[in-house]
């Protein structure tokens, strides 16, 4: 049963990633694209965890954590760049 549930979740997350990619491509405003990238990172974390359940391995946890951290820092850096024109001063 877990197999079918994880397949369902993986399909849902994949469709969600495609919708996010659509917004990333057409997004009229640049903040839409940043938001889409942020969401794409979170979807990637979900897919990594589902892969961990699928192949019954615990190797991917660190990858998920690094994705979460790098995604957050990237979002903040992008926004800061938009608002102020530079990231580090």
């Amino acid at each position: 049963m877990i197999f079918y549930a994880s397949v369902f979740a993986a399909v849902a997350v994949s469709i969600a990633s495609l919708l996010t990619l659509y917004r990333l491509l057409i997004g009229p405003h640049v903040t839409d694209r940043i938001l889409a990238l942020d969401t794409l990172t979170i979807n990637a974390i979900a897919l990594i965890m589902l892969a961990g359940i699928f192949w019954e391995t615990t190797t991917f946890f660190e990858a998920a954590m690094l994705f979460a951290m790098v995604g957050f820092v990237a979002t903040v850096a992008f926004c800061k760049y938009i608002v102020r024109g530079n990231v580090m001063e």
Binding site: A5, F8, A12, L19, T20, I42
Partner: peptide, 30 residues
Amino acid sequence: IVISIVLVIGGFFIFVGSFGLAKLPDTMRR
């Protein structure tokens, strides 16, 4: 059963989040 239900809920909500991102009309709503 519990794990399956939680997985299905998670997949559903991730889908809803990205669907809202693609569907809603302006950035603040997105």
